[in-house]
Design a protein around this nucleic acid. Structure first.
Lengths: 207, 207
DNA sequence: TAGATCTGCGACACTTCTGTTTCAGTTAGT
DNA sequence: ACTAACTGAAACAGAAGTGTCGCAGATCTA
């Protein structure tokens, strides 16, 4: 049975879909093996309704992954990677991505991978990311002989690292610059990530 | 029923246990939700036998996680973090860890976490790691005001990153230094990781 | 070689989850 | 206000997995 109707849904049905997706993210983030029933309960809906809107558990996860991937792409674009100065764009995009990934941890994680359309979006995002890094490289801020794919992966890894130790990041990075920031706000973390990717943790070259 | 007998196992039974653990790693690495039956089949054993040796599926995973954690700890110690020069120890330990993590990807991954004894070992490993980083910091190779816990997490993240894109790392890092190394050997990768952690991907400070 | 141990085989009860269906009652849209 | 769409409730069949048991035969060990 196809639950991807051509006709537009009624307002309440649309609301249900949103509630289910939001609940799925919430529940699956904590327990990836969670039941459809648990998701339904968290959404304030019956299991029957979930199955009415999503053909299968997998279909639900795929939809979730796709939606989240779209938000991720949007987060990058909101940094204006084309028009803004590359480093500014990178910083803004990083902060945006941190917000999105924090809110859609499961849907953007490995457990939700395998969704075909989502995978395409992620691939496109990676392309844009390398593009932006290339522009930064042209400015000489990234070594000319650096492998941009490796740079991108380091960058991704640090984003992921920052996100799964929320309270652990008190006075992150250099205690002098970041002080004891009690609030792990995305901008400070983005600065930490970008700085670490570019310069590592070694002592600063004078200047 | 307790499958942790006080008496020593017979030789063939011991062999079965080893085969089951090895097969579990192999199978679960590719499909974390794999069945006990699939594991048994891969081990050349019946499901009954698996249950004879491990009280439950979870008990099997816990045993796997614990064994792998021990190998990880061993990998660190093999770098002689106490006696060798800190940077040498870090490099050796990194190469060793890469080997171990490549072979025990599932058992050391998040899916196998939650095992109580394994968790304690991992905590101990992290402590040793920070200790070593502290010694490197004293040498001035890591900035004096850097948060070592953050450094450790960056280090871990890069190790993880290197490991889940095996064939993608052809001419890793700086193409000039690494050339097009067709073989992603642990030592080259370890050098890449350590270098990136310390200096990032920015242009080298002259020298 | 004798006795203890281990294994495969086949079966069993039990639980849990999925996906479907029907139907009566509610809610949105026009 | 009328119709179409949506929902909850309650059941159903079915699949799949887990853990257990007993037994006959193979395999180790002393």
């Amino acid at each position: 049975m196809n639950r991807t109707p051509g006709r537009p849904l009624r307002a309440d049905a649309e609301r249900s879909v949103r509630a289910i997706l939001a609940a799925a993210e919430r529940v699956l983030a904590e327990h990836p093996g969670a039941t459809v029933e648990q998701i339904a309960e968290a959404a304030g809906v019956t299991r029957t309704t979930v199955h009415r809107r999503f053909a299968s558990r997998q279909a639900l996860i795929d939809a979730l992954a796709t939606e989240a991937a779209a938000k991720l792409a949007e987060a990058i674009e909101d940094g204006h990677p084309e028009t803004a100065p590359p480093l500014v764009a990178l910083h803004r995009a990083t902060a945006n991505v941190l917000r999105v990934k924090a809110a859609w941890g499961f849907a953007l994680g490995p457990a939700a991978a395998g969704s075909e359309p989502a995978a395409r979006i992620h691939q496109e995002v990676a392309r844009r990311c390398v593009e932006l890094l290339g522009r930064i490289q042209e400015q000489g801020v990234i070594a000319a002989d650096a492998d941009l794919e490796w740079v991108r992966r380091v960058y991704y890894a640090l984003i992921g690292e920052v996100l799964h130790g929320q309270p652990a990041i008190a006075g992150a990075g250099r205690t002098t610059t970041a002080e004891t920031a009690t609030d792990p706000d995305p901008d400070a973390l983005a600065a930490l990530i970008v700085d670490t990717v570019l310069h590592g943790v070694g002592p600063r070259a004078a200047g």
